[in-house]
Nucleic acid binder design. Structure first.
Lengths: 228, 228
DNA sequence: TTAAGTTTGTTGTAAAAACAACATATTTGT
DNA sequence: ACAAATATGTTGTTTTTACAACAAACTTAA
């Protein structure tokens, strides 16, 4: 675990907590580490979870699958992020989603109940951890609300442009690399992959964007009557 | 405010807190009350908020509007629920959504920072309030994830059936009343109202459901090969 | 009670999406 | 370097949606 101390100390959960204290906190929280291969299930829908996951390396997709195997990606979490915390403290009998490694990933599981319960050793960092936890929950909330911004759009084209614009804004650059391949992006935006691919190419042919693999560039609008 | 003590003491925020203490906590949290008429904006997108809202009566819609006035409903909150808490502790410069009263509503605003900061009077209930806040944030998170269940579906018909099935399950009854009118439901499921209305009537004609205004009844499938 | 306003249902049309099937390109493992 | 597997692009067809325009039902306020 010590090899990941750089990830851990940058994590929201350990914000404002000294590096030297993190290891002792982790043992207090029953931290257990496990490695998953690409496409391996970390949690399956219908299971009951009582732990939260912290991504030490790699990334995971929170997904919803139907009977016919159609996959929808609810959210993607990368190194340093926490997932599953909302489920482990809810009264839901079973997990409404699955969590799958989208590439080889090392996950640290911690006992969530222990995070949010006052430490029997009344360790000094505990209230700080709870503060951080409030922030993480709020941020994961906002992540979903911001995703809605793309999903509410009525056409595939608008969804793509909404998503890509946000990525450009995040990167603070018209050129940026996205973390999804085409199938994942389609599953994330809830559209058909081939229709989406077709639309992306149309956007390219119209001079609105260019791309190479997962690197996209958005061009400025030439229309001077732009409303933005 | 005292007239709403029944609402307050049933609220998740005041779970496990004595009725007699709630009033004093509210003054500690700078609680302010305000009444809004139907369709009145409580918060507009692009504003900065530092408070959280508690619904004493009525209900509110968290919405996203585009330049052309198209409205999408992200979530609806009713009496006793809390909204806006995630934004008031985020680093977002501006609110990504608007909050509108969907009927006459009385809202209690509280200083969110004070909820999550240790009380200078170190009042005894404070850690309990923080516990409750963790639960509220997790629940609001799960609410959004559960909504995704409907939204990911590819056809209007499937979205409607997914939504109505959940309502039946929640009501624990095949007959139930929904909190949305037709336009709101369409805005909530991100589909066109007239197309949705048309689809609902087809479902009725096919004997899958019946309805009268906002009261729906789902009929059991007759197909014995049902996969469920 | 009546008129005006609002909500819901209905229909037709044009646009868009899903779907399927396949071609091409890229990646991976040996 | 090669074959196999995977990912992406392309095209045509069918289904579904959005949109518009209007009719009918219902609600509200004078």
């Amino acid at each position: 675990m010590k090899e990941y101390i750089d990830v851990l100390k940058k994590m929201p959960l350990f914000h404002n907590i000294d590096e030297k204290d993190i290891i002792s906190i982790l043992s207090c929280l029953c931290a257990k580490e496990k490695t998953y291969n690409k496409d391996e299930y970390i949690w399956s829908a219908e299971n009951k979870v009582s732990e939260a996951g912290i991504i030490l390396s790699g990334s995971v997709n929170v997904i919803k699958e139907d009977y016919w195997g159609n996959r929808a990606i609810i959210s993607k979490f990368s190194s340093g992020k926490m997932f599953g915390e909302a489920f482990s403290c809810s009264k839901l009998a079973k997990l409404p989603v699955s969590v799958v490694a989208s590439e080889k990933a090392k996950i640290l599981f911690i006992n969530y109940k222990k995070i949010i319960t006052v430490c029997p050793n009344s360790c000094a960092f505990h209230s700080k951890i709870i503060d951080n936890m409030l922030k993480i929950l709020a941020d994961n909330n906002i992540l979903l609300i911001q995703k809605m911004e793309h999903i509410v759009k009525r056409t595939t084209r608008e969804k793509i442009l909404s998503f890509l614009s946000e990525q450009a804004k995040k990167a603070d650059n018209n050129s940026f690399t996205i973390e999804f391949n085409r199938q994942e992006l389609a599953d994330y935006l809830y559209v058909d992959r081939s229709a989406m691919s077709n639309e992306i190419c149309k956007l390219r042919d119209e001079g609105i964007l260019s791309f190479n693999k997962n690197k996209f560039t958005l061009f400025e609008k030439k229309n001077p009557n732009s409303i933005n």
